[in-house]
């Protein structure tokens, strides 16, 4: 039995997944994480490092890493790539001025070898704002249709109302589970 097969078996037994949440600063990553976990979102500060949360959902143990997105922190993102099963890319759908930044950061990530096997969920967040762009517009602006290297999906959501957070995470888990927990 090869090493990879052993690893796979181990994961299978624990049904454990590692999710990495990234995106520009102010996108709403920490708010999504806390809302998903049913915590108060009114006291969240800009992340000066990272948060890790372990929670159970649908019989899986999720280790979710939420890393700060300020410019000065982005060079540290790579420290968190290892053994990521799912990448959650969070976009502030009302921040039209930084969509190009957002697109560039995402395409750089997708070239990373250590993220090669990860499933990509794009959250088009802040859909509650009247001026937010639709998920179709975000999909176009980020050129998601050009992604051939990863399984991906974009979901419009709002961390403030909680809308669609479950839908997104459920899709992600299903996709990952289909990849890593089913027989070779």
């Amino acid at each position: 039995m090869g090493f990879l097969t052993i690893l796979k078996k181990m994961k299978q037994k624990e049904r454990e997944m590692r999710l990495l949440m990234l995106g520009l600063d102010n996108a709403g990553k920490t708010t999504i994480l806390k809302k998903f976990n049913g915590e108060d979102v009114s006291t969240i500060s800009p992340t000066l490092g990272f948060n890790i949360k372990t929670l159970e959902h649908k019989g899986f143990k999720l280790n979710i890493w939420d890393v700060g997105g300020q410019k000065s922190l982005r060079s540290y993102w790579k420290n968190y790539f290892e053994s990521t099963d799912g990448l959650v890319w969070v976009v502030d759908s009302a921040d039209r001025l930084r969509l190009q930044d957002c697109r560039q950061e995402l395409s750089a990530l997708l070239l990373e070898e250590r993220l090669a096997g990860a499933t990509l969920l794009v959250f088009a967040n802040k859909q509650d704002l009247p001026g937010s762009l639709s998920k179709e517009a975000i999909r176009e602006a980020l050129a998601l249709d050009e992604i051939k290297s990863h399984h991906w999906c974009i979901i419009g959501c709002s961390a403030v109302t909680g809308e669609n957070l479950l839908t997104g995470v459920d899709w992600l888990l299903d996709d990952i589970a289909a990849r890593i927990f089913t027989a070779d």
């Binding site: 009302a94 039209r96 001025l97 930084r98 969509l99 190009q100 930044d101 009247p130 001026g131 762009l133 517009a137 602006a141």
Partner: peptide
Amino acid sequence: GEVDGADASEQ
């Protein structure tokens, strides 16, 4: 790098 103008009636 600026996508602007879209939905000008909303923002």
